[in-house]
Each structure stands twice: as C-alpha cells, then as structure tokens.
Design a protein around this nucleic acid. Structure first.
Lengths: 160, 160
DNA sequence: AAAATATGTCAACAAAGCTGACATATTCGA
DNA sequence: TCGAATATGTCAGCTTTGTTGACATATTTT
C-alpha cells in the first residue's frame, strides 16, 4: 500500500538538485567513509553471527588482544561506551573463555584483561578478512603512499 | 564488588604478548579505521541527540540530499538494511517535514525521495563538522595525495 | 489474467547503546 | 587512621536500530 501522502509532483518545498561540493563541504569523502566502514565491518559480522556474538564482542576481543593487561577503565575509554554496556559483552567473553581477568598487582581493585588462546584465535580469525580487504585496497600504492593513509586516519581522530 | 572470578595471577592460558603485525595482519590500520569512524560520527551524533533523531536518520537525510529522487529500493540497497528498519526512520523524517515523497512518473509504484529546504539545511548542518574534521586531517597533504585517500577509501568498498 | 515488482505495515524479537542507583573492595589524602 | 575517592560490578528499565515473517495494495510486466 504505497503511502498516500506521496505527492503527484514536486511542490515548492521539494529540492531536486543534488547536494554537491558546494559550501566547502567534502561530501565525497564523507560518503566514502560510510561505504568503507560499512563493508569493512561486514566481514567479521558474518563470522560472528555464527557464534552468537556481535560487533561489540569483536571490539572487546580486538583491543584485549592488542593491549593485553589493559584495565576495564582503559577499555571503556577506548570504546567510548558506558560500563553497563561493556559489562554485558565482557561477561559473556569471560564466561565463555575468550578473556581472562587478572587482579592488578599494584592496585588490587583493577581487573586487568588478557586474551586466552581461544580469544587470540578469534581475534585473528576476525582480523583476517579485514586485513585482506585493506591489503587489496592498498595494492597499487607505494610504501610512502601507504604511510599517508595511516597518517590521514590518525589525523581524523580526536586528540587524547 | 570487583568480580570474584578474577585470577590472582595469569594462568597457563593467559596470553600476555600484544597482538602485533605478525601473521601479515594489518592491525594498525584496522584499529585506526575504528578510531577514525568513532570520532567521525561523534560530531553529528551530538547534534542529532538534541532533535530526537539518531544516526539512522542522519544516513537517510544524507543520501536523500546527495541523490534527490532516489527510490526507496535505491536507499535500501545503499544502506544495506531492511525496509522495515528504514520505514521507521523514513516515516519520522517525512512526518516532520525533512523529506518529501513523490510518485514516480514512469512507474507510479515508486516513491521518489527528495529533501525539503528543512531537510537540506539539516544535512548541511550535520555535514559541516564532519567536513571540518576531514579538512583538518587533509591539511598538510598535497592535492595528489588527497586524491590517494579517496582512491583508498573507494577501494575498500565491495564492488557493486 | 496472472505473475512480478515497489512499497507499506503489523508484530515480535535481538543487539547494543543509555541513565540512575547502589554495593564492595581498595587506595589515597588530610 | 579514617573518611573520601577510585575501580569495578550489578540491578532495573528504557531507547535506537537492526532483524524475521507475514501479509496488503497498487502498478507494471508477461
């Protein structure tokens, strides 16, 4: 039942010209970033859906493997989510043996996070298709040019 | 009440070495893409939260402004979400006067999507901080180098 | 005339974010 | 040493945005 509130033809307040590179706005790159990230996450998402995990688990597994021994506070700051939101996925990962929590040595309030062998394997499995995509996208670029890509991406991140 | 299942010290299945550029995996860029996209979306998110809209509305408003007259099917294919998921946000945008639907001329089943003035203004407001971030990240690169960034991002996208 | 297509809609559910409130263990500072 | 601050966990409830499945309508195609 196609909506009855569709107009027969454009009215006075219907804009028909595409929003292009006017106003100094870089629409092309804005859009390309959306597409790149959309497809970049699609590979691991497909793998994760088989094991009942989601993108949130992926992020935790990634960073715990990248920086073993990071505290819960570190992880919260990295992901920029609330502890209640993290708690859900972290608990599942600990309970199913992907992540271990180790009491801090200097500060025993801390729960330092480490991957298990199983967690390391999962992180690698998820990274593989993403890395393949990146390698393919970087093929045809020289080493210096590849460094530029990294430099650009780092410059897109907020300081701190 | 810090979890009682934390270990006092790492056990045999606790991995302590950081996952680095072994296995040919490009962890640095994987991570940088996460950070870049995390902060890239944070600017419009902050603006949207004031008006009761979310990131899903942003995407619709962006593409309808970029390609006025696109069909619902076009939009679904671009966003890679289901029509039921799109319906919710699209209805809100139509009802609150950001998007108009116009019956297709050649095919009257279609509902072609156009921004209103209000919709165009919102799209610009949301794009502005993102473009500012991109411009800043690209400063220091020459015109040829900037083209490389775009080339890389396009190469990250699945064909079709 | 039947089949395919474009769109809309209902209902139920899931993932992953949020706020607010409160508990415990530990460390730090006056 | 004692009270405040910190690190973490947890309960409850809510929101956004995705999903599936089923079905309806209008229009176009075969």
């Amino acid at each position: 039942m196609p909506s009855e509130r569709a107009q027969k033809s454009p009215d006075a307040d219907t804009i028909t010209d595409p929003m292009a590179e006017i106003d100094d706005i870089d629409f092309d790159i804005i859009e390309q970033l959306f597409f790149a990230y959309r497809d970049f996450t699609s590979d691991p998402d497909a793998i994760l859906s088989k094991s009942g995990f989601g993108r949130a688990h992926h992020r935790v597994v990634h960073f715990v493997n990248r920086r073993p021994g990071m505290t819960v506070a570190d992880l919260l700051d990295t992901l920029k989510i609330t502890k209640q939101s993290l708690a859900r996925v972290l608990k599942q990962l600990v309970d199913s043996g992907f992540v271990n929590q180790v009491e801090g040595v200097r500060d025993r309030r801390q729960r330092r996070l480490y991957p298990t062998r199983k967690g390391r394997d999962l992180a690698l499995e998820l990274a593989r298709p993403q890395s393949r995509r990146i390698t393919k996208a970087l093929s045809g670029f020289g080493p210096e040019e590849q460094k530029l890509i990294g430099k650009f991406l780092r410059a897109m991140v907020d300081p701190q």
